[in-house]
Design a protein around this nucleic acid. Structure first.
Length: 267
DNA sequence: ACCCAGGGTAACT
DNA sequence: AGTTACCATGGG
């Protein structure tokens, strides 16, 4: 079935292409297709109306949660706009919503992301899904940690993930053993949740914060990649402005998308 | 041939 | 505590 979403500050193109997720692709003029939570849907946006195609009726609440439709982003935009740089970032990228993605998929995806570029990240993830995920009718789900139990770097050779293969294996093992517990991470404050994720070889501050922001919706997480380090040095040498307090991750994503899409900025 | 890519690790000061 | 080579792969 199909259903529609009317929600302010929701731009599917910005949301899907801002680098927080890797399994949504624009197939034809404005139509996005992808797989999340083992389900395949497509979406199209006309003005403030987003139409979702191919969703099961009972999954509507699940998608509403995935797209974070209950969060008032207008409030963040209003707060941020007291700062001039952030005001411009909101203008350019304020249609981004921080998705509530699946923890395991997000963890593996951002392990793969390190010292890598977005097209190749998507390629490696796609091959992981084709190799180990379930065929859900023309697409493949992201494999579970349980499905990947006991995997070795050699098993992952077809992915061409390079030195990251052993990091993936370590993550699978620690998730399956319970050393890394998503239930505990969900309940823990940012710093302690970060330390739990950093037990995994190949997970440092940046990857951990991406997982905490894009899967666990800890909006105070502030992933510092090369782009963010550059923009912080240029615009905020003394740190983020007060107006971002408690929603640093939302500001991060607006700023990241803003500087990446405006090559005129000297960052 | 060289550089970079949503970094992290190990081995150095 | 702060710096640096190296990591595997692919595109410019």
């Amino acid at each position: 079935m199909n259903f529609t979403i009317k929600n302010p500050n929701f731009d599917i193109k910005q949301t899907f292409l801002c680098g927080q997720c890797f399994r949504w692709t624009e197939t034809e003029n404005g139509v996005f297709e992808g797989v999340a939570m083992g389900r395949r849907i497509s979406l199209k946006q006309d003005g403030d109306t987003v139409t979702v195609y191919g969703a099961a009726a009972e999954d509507i609440p699940l998608w509403e949660r995935y797209f974070d439709l209950d969060t008032d982003y207008g409030e963040y935009i209003s707060r941020f706009s007291s700062d001039e740089t952030l005001r411009r970032a909101c203008e350019s990228s304020g249609g981004i919503r921080i998705l509530r993605q699946e923890p395991f998929e997000t963890l593996i995806s951002f392990i793969i992301s390190q010292n890598n570029n977005i097209p190749r990240i998507s390629g490696i993830i796609g091959r992981l899904c084709e190799s180990f995920g379930d065929d859900i009718g023309g697409a493949f789900s992201f494999p579970s940690a349980e499905r990947l139990r006991g995997i070795t770097p050699d098993d992952l050779a077809p992915l061409r993930a390079g030195f990251r293969a052993r990091y993936i294996c370590d993550a699978v093992e620690k998730v399956n053993s319970g050393a890394v517990s998503f239930e505990e991470i969900d309940a823990l404050p940012l710093a302690e949740a970060r330390e739990m994720l950093k037990q995994i070889v190949g997970v440092g501050d940046k990857v951990a914060d991406c997982v905490l922001l894009f899967a666990f919706h800890k909006l105070d997480a502030f992933p510092r990649d090369v782009w963010v380090k550059r923009l912080m040095a240029q615009f905020y040498p003394k740190g983020l402005p007060e107006c971002t307090r408690g929603a640093e991750g939302v500001a991060q994503q607006y700023l990241f998308d803003y500087v990446r899409n405006n090559s005129g900025l000297t960052v």
